[in-house]
């Protein structure tokens, strides 16, 4: 994919997007709403066309001018878009029955293929049911089977788990990962859920305001974010402006902004080596698996959020209004001029 631009009237939804996906990869397009990720997906699918000059290649062939139906893509919608009046069987068989007469498989072949797909999505006994008789997770699996029936070159999923509840969503995305490991179809999925993207994808493209900010494997995106936006979007953070104590000092004259994750803030009862920052505990939120501690730095009264493991919290025996020292682990500095 090269130089994709897309404008709606005066607003530009995509600015010069370049993306190269290898065969068999599972890619996540991650970004806040309005960042252009769905638009990009729809352009790849051929539902929308890019502004002149944008080109899309599948396996080296230019498909920019190819119709949606001839691109051989599988598209999975957030709201399933199953054919309501057709049974699960007919839904999955639709793509096979839609082929031109000379390529169309025989009824027996269609039946075998549909049964194979139903087994793949673990819905063997649901063939005669109608979509309205299925749960959300089941519907989405049918939608996936329907998309896979035509053996697509690329599988595109638009917020596939967005309409499901949290538990089903987590279950289904693990299942998707396993499924992908089995069938290895090149897949691109759109999500606004950073956890989902990091857990499922081989590589994550973080998008913002129509641009791809970073395109890298999950660990790299998380550990070495390219810019403050990526850092901020992938989790909570504390922001320290200027050259604060504990932040890495920089030789450049511009003031760095330092980002630290709440779980990378260490709380100490005493300032043994003198590098700690004095702070006061203002609130403690107990979550079971972790404890949120809100602090205020004593020097500039800036709020700092820390996340401790329950064990660390017990060892420290923190109380509200207690004065402690904090240390920053693993801080990320970005320079103001590099910020968005």
């Amino acid at each position: 994919m090269r130089g994709i631009n897309k404008s709606y009237g005066s607003s530009q939804a995509l600015r010069d997007v370049n993306l190269k996906v290898s065969t068999g990869e599972l890619i996540a397009l991650l970004g806040p709403s309005g960042s252009g990720k769905t638009t990009l997906l729809r352009i790849i699918a051929g539902i929308e066309s890019p502004d002149p000059g944008g080109r899309i290649f599948f396996d080296g062939t230019d498909v920019s001018a190819t119709d949606l139906g001839k691109r051989r893509i599988g598209f999975v919608f957030q709201h399933y878009a199953l054919f309501k009046h057709m049974s699960v069987f007919e839904n999955i068989a639709f793509g096979l029955r839609s082929k031109p007469r000379q390529e169309r498989p025989s009824n027996a072949a269609i039946k075998a293929k549909v049964e194979e797909l139903l087994a793949l999505v673990q819905l063997q006994n649901f063939a005669p049911r109608y979509p309205s008789q299925l749960s959300g997770g089941q519907r989405q699996r049918v939608a996936l089977a329907r998309a896979l029936a035509v053996e697509p070159r690329v599988l595109l999923l638009d917020e596939p788990f967005g309409a499901l509840d949290a538990t089903v969503r987590r279950e289904l995305r693990r299942w998707l990962r396993k499924l992908h490991d089995r069938i290895h179809v090149t897949s691109i999925f759109v999500t606004h859920d950073q956890e989902e993207a990091l857990e499922v994808a081989d590589r994550v493209a973080v998008m913002n305001a129509g641009r791809i900010e970073q395109f890298a494997p999950p660990e790299e995106v998380y550990e070495r974010p390219a810019n403050p936006f990526v850092y901020g979007f992938l989790g909570n953070f504390n922001l320290f402006h200027g050259r604060r104590d504990g932040a890495p000092r920089s030789e450049t004259p511009s003031t760095p902004a330092t980002f630290v994750r709440p779980h990378d803030i260490e709380i100490l009862r005493d300032n043994a080596d003198g590098s700690g920052i004095a702070a006061k505990v203002t609130h403690i939120g107990f979550l079971g698996s972790a404890v949120n501690v809100e602090l205020i730095k004593l020097d500039d009264h800036q709020q700092v959020d820390a996340a401790l493991t329950t064990q660390a919290y017990r060892d420290l025996a923190l109380k509200v209004d207690q004065e402690v020292f904090i240390k920053l682990r693993n801080p990320h500095s970005f320079y103001e001029d590099y910020a968005i």
């Binding site: 599988g74 054919f83 035509v150």
Partner: peptide, 23 residues
């Protein structure tokens, strides 16, 4: 969405209209 789904599965315009929209 259903029409787009049908088209993406390779159904022609008339088939999409008949089996999805009209149905």
């Amino acid at each position: 969405e259903e029409e787009i789904a049908a088209l993406s599965l390779g159904a022609g315009g008339w088939r999409t209209f008949r089996t999805v929209t009209l149905a």
